[in-house]
Design a binder for these strands. Sequence first.
DNA 1: TCATAAACGAGACGGTACGTCGAGTCTTCGG
DNA 2: CCGAAGACTCGACGTACCGTCTCGTTTATGA
Lengths: 211, 211, 211, 211
Amino acid sequence: MSPQKVPDSSRRSDRSRRAIYDAALALVGEAGYPRTTIEGIAARAGVGKQTIYRWWPSKAAVLMEAFLDLAARQAEEAAGAGEGDDGGHVIPDTGDLAADLRHVLRATVDELNDPVTEAPTRALAAEGIVDPVLGAQFVERLLDPSIQLYVTRLRAAQEAGELRADIDPRIALELLIAPLTHRWLLRTLPLTHAYADTLVDYALGGLSARP
Amino acid sequence: MSPQKVPDSSRRSDRSRRAIYDAALALVGEAGYPRTTIEGIAARAGVGKQTIYRWWPSKAAVLMEAFLDLAARQAEEAAGAGEGDDGGHVIPDTGDLAADLRHVLRATVDELNDPVTEAPTRALAAEGIVDPVLGAQFVERLLDPSIQLYVTRLRAAQEAGELRADIDPRIALELLIAPLTHRWLLRTLPLTHAYADTLVDYALGGLSARP
Amino acid sequence: MSPQKVPDSSRRSDRSRRAIYDAALALVGEAGYPRTTIEGIAARAGVGKQTIYRWWPSKAAVLMEAFLDLAARQAEEAAGAGEGDDGGHVIPDTGDLAADLRHVLRATVDELNDPVTEAPTRALAAEGIVDPVLGAQFVERLLDPSIQLYVTRLRAAQEAGELRADIDPRIALELLIAPLTHRWLLRTLPLTHAYADTLVDYALGGLSARP
Amino acid sequence: MSPQKVPDSSRRSDRSRRAIYDAALALVGEAGYPRTTIEGIAARAGVGKQTIYRWWPSKAAVLMEAFLDLAARQAEEAAGAGEGDDGGHVIPDTGDLAADLRHVLRATVDELNDPVTEAPTRALAAEGIVDPVLGAQFVERLLDPSIQLYVTRLRAAQEAGELRADIDPRIALELLIAPLTHRWLLRTLPLTHAYADTLVDYALGGLSARP
DNA sequence: TCATAAACGAGACGGTACGTCGAGTCTTCGG
DNA sequence: CCGAAGACTCGACGTACCGTCTCGTTTATGA
């Protein structure tokens, strides 16, 4: 077998890790993803290149972790500030499904339009499209959690008789979310609250004329 | 203005252009997009690097044109073979909107699942996500044409009373297409005819339970 | 055999030839020999590259001819202006060999110090050192003529009893000229009239102490 | 000042340096200087191009150092083998100046005629003629040492009354050496021991007829 | 007098080498 | 004894010229 030197993660320098996250996010924001290099991250973080190669397999992996770390810290902040809220974007259940979906889709629109997170998110998405391993991580770590929230809320709606009983919530949610990410990824048309509302309307009501 | 030396396209070598298209598509298929290099394309095409740099601004631009050329040639073939069909993917109008949409969405599923075109398409999509200029070209040259077909068919359905009159076809079609590309891009779940059928069902019928 | 298409020199464009000479000399003067390119000469002369390749085998050959042309034109001018002088640098024969040699060596010093001709001369010399064919041309076309003048003058001196009869003039002249070109080529020490005078003194009188 | 990143020479790889010297000398010998490329040297030495660019500013500089290294190693060998001789070409002092000069000039003739060192030496000389910086190094590192030996020997001769007291040894030696290098550089006539002997004769005795 | 063949300007072409950048690996040295 | 520093091999970048090869366009006789 290969003697694969596995580094001892218990002795890992936290200071370096944070510095690398910061440098990576800063560089992607300033210069864009393709002009962000591992050498550049190392230099900016005041860290040896080897320290990056030791802990991450690729530039995209660094960015992914940096991004997750950022999200986690933001969530922590939010949790600290607001009470009762767990920091994630739980979908409310007011009993009015349409209103609840509009609420959360509008929030998603705002997130996607945030200029700070746009560059790294696009970079990760693009990388994930081409690299299946990274793509799987992207989905699993960034998308799946929020998708579960939708599934939960839609199930509740089914039980409440708001939603057709024969519907697969996993597919239903795609009718709502996919058009959003579609517009964002391809920049075909602007992404607005009005668009989110329309989506909810069309998806729930259906496109067909009623007899 | 800039004195940008513009090459004389009337003296362009057709043989080189074709060879470059072939080499680019072959390499992307064999080695993947990131391991496809301009140097490699030039070598494989038996062409000087400068001949590529003279006519294209980037690797992605070469691939885009190669891809469009491929599509054009395939369309030409199809047009030559089949009669009555104009080579594009016109959406049929049998009077049954649901059936027609299932037909065309299934065809789209098959196209996306085609292993030959998958690699270059993913590469272009990924590049377009990060590079707005290329993204715009991608949309304009590859997507817009088929989108227009949907718009046309949906308008006809509205006039026929099959579709709600208050609906914007430009948005309606996103309910149908976006989930498909979403699954394809993110590889969340397999892309099947059954999925296409379900989408048509959900989108036309709506998700809400009927009173 | 090869059908070696030989161009018809009677139809050669004189205007192009002159333009090429001018451009070549100007570029060597401005940018130095290594940064002078055939493409650059052609562009500056407003001439197609092929017109250069048709008539000259190499950059050095162009420069050599340009240089000879320049020399010829200067000689012509001099001949037109001064009467009695034939334009070449005939070595005077006043009966005083030492004085005559000082005169001509001082003239040579001035020529070598001329900043206008320095760059192309150095370029040609350097090329000739490495390329035997060009070196032979350099010697034959630029050096031999003046060397013959020395030989003639030294022969006359032998007949006049000024010079040892057992001496080979071909070698004797090298004692005088070589140190000059040596200093010029290697830039060891400045090249002055005083140096020329000293050389004549040492060479004629000999280095040995007299008994 | 400029922040010129200067590499840390203490961490330099000796193995690479030697390999580069060997490759450079071999290639110049085999293919000639103009067809020797930095890329070629790197490939042959099994070295990255950057390792050459990191330590040398130009192809000529590489060759110069390779050449000096070769000379140093040869001198070392000679010193190891012969006793009493320090490896350099000290000019003997037998009391007979003419004989001593003939001896050393003959040795110089042999060196210049050595086919192994000819190509690189010519290349360096040619480059030095055109590039003043390199020329200065060439003179300082390759010529000056031997010139000093001449000066020393000629001073001794003056003190011994063999040489005219009013003579500048720095100029006198040029009478002897310059004709040699002149013939070698320009390939006008063959370079033989007889020629060396004649030079000594003419220079010491003088060209003038004796009264 | 004009046709016709060449030399001409322009510049695209297949190549080679340039000098730079970054990737990922390996080595040295200081805290 | 970890980690910063950075030298190393390797490969691709985008540029500059090379020398060859068409393209029309002059131009300058000789039929």
